[in-house]
Amino acid sequence: MRLTSGLIISVTRDDEAAGLRAVLSARDDVTPGEPEGRWLPAAIEAEDDARLRELHDWIASRPGVAFVDVVHVNFDDSTTPEPLLNPLP
């Protein structure tokens, strides 16, 4: 099972959104979008609910972040295992 959420991250000042975007884009499990003023959209994914929450809390604890709101949730309960990106020889 893999969960994907769409978030709006509210930062306290407009000029903080870009810096935050750079921090978030360094992670594989976060895909930030283009900031709109104090609001930065992002998609996050994790393999279960608990980890998704942890990721959510981690983003919320970044400096300059005022709120993290969820606007979209998608869960994929396919039981077929995904192939490894680089199959072992």
Partner: peptide
């Protein structure tokens, strides 16, 4: 998960 390894292509094995 904050502890997840960065920019590894072996995401699954990394997770395991």
């Amino acid at each position: 998960m904050p502890a997840a390894p960065k920019s590894s292509k072996r995401i699954e094995s990394g997770f395991i």
